[in-house]
Amino acid sequence: MDVNYINPIISSFASVMPQLGLPAVEKKGISLKGRFIESPGVVIIVGIIGDIKGNVIYGLSLEAAKTIASTMMMGMPVENFDELAQSAISELTNMITATVATNFSKEDININISTPTLVHGSFTANASSDKVVCVQMGVGDMNIDVNISMEKNTI
């Protein structure tokens, strides 16, 4: 995977989160993972196709997902990770990944994104390639793993 694919994702994350009332966004670390991504509670998968193909797999704890959903819904309490809270988190990842597409277009790289797929519970997700770069982002006292599995499309 080209490391130049990482910065547009980090910058979109740092740009979108504060707009939704989620301050103190910071990159906490970068690591390499294999194809299999263990769920920390909630996983959202967004497919990438175009000049680049692959996926971005966002992972966060159930408590972090409920806190972020509550913030996005103007402080409405989220006691259960119900359909409304799931929709808010899916829309967040949609906004972040759409901004990634815009950032790539500034580099003359054209991509389209899929509708986010949200799954929660205990399971293992399967990335689109064997090498995954995980960027751990901090949002206040919460962590979100941004697992990036992308490569140049040769078709």
Rank of each mutant, 00 (worst) to 15 (best):
N80M: 02
L92Q: 01
T93P: 00
M150P: 09
V119R: 08
N153H: 12
I113C: 03
P116T: 11
C134P: 03
S12H: 10
M150R: 13
N55G: 15
I111Y: 00
L20C: 10
N55Q: 15
Q86P: 02
P77I: 00
A69T: 01
I45R: 14
S39K: 04
G140Q: 08
T67H: 08
I89V: 15
E79L: 00
G75I: 11
N153L: 06
T71L: 09
I113D: 00
T124P: 03
I48A: 13
I155T: 09
T67L: 06
A24M: 12
G54S: 10
E63M: 06
A64R: 02
G121C: 13
G29W: 12
T93Y: 03
Y5A: 13
K106S: 12
G41A: 04
D2V: 00
T97Y: 07
I6C: 07
L84W: 01
S39P: 04
I9M: 12
K66V: 02
I9K: 03
N143E: 14
K152E: 14
C134R: 13
G29T: 13
T99D: 11
Q19T: 08
I44K: 04
E91T: 05
G59Q: 07
F123V: 08
V43G: 06
Y5E: 04
T124C: 08
M137K: 04
V43K: 11
M150G: 15
I52D: 01
G54Q: 11
L60D: 07
K131A: 08
M150D: 07
S12P: 01
V78W: 01
L62W: 02
L20S: 04
G29R: 12
V56A: 08
Q19M: 15
I48N: 03
A101Q: 04
T117V: 15
A88D: 06
I111S: 03
N4G: 06
E26P: 00
V146H: 09
K53W: 05
T97P: 01
L92S: 03
Q86A: 11
F36Q: 14
V56C: 13
V133L: 15
A14G: 07
M1R: 09
P8A: 04
P23M: 07
N103M: 03
I144E: 02
G75V: 09
L118D: 09
S90K: 15
I111E: 03
M95H: 08
G138E: 13
S11W: 02
L20Y: 05
T99I: 02
I9E: 03
I96G: 11
G138R: 08
K66L: 00
N7I: 02
K131P: 00
G47L: 12
A69R: 02
V46Q: 09
G47N: 14
T117L: 10
P18S: 10
I45T: 15
I9N: 04
D130Y: 14
M1T: 12
E79N: 05
H120F: 09
A65I: 00
F104I: 06
M72C: 05
S15D: 07
M76G: 06
K152A: 11
I68H: 05
I48D: 02
I30D: 09
T97K: 06
N94I: 01
S70L: 04
I89Y: 05
N143K: 11
A101L: 02
P18V: 13
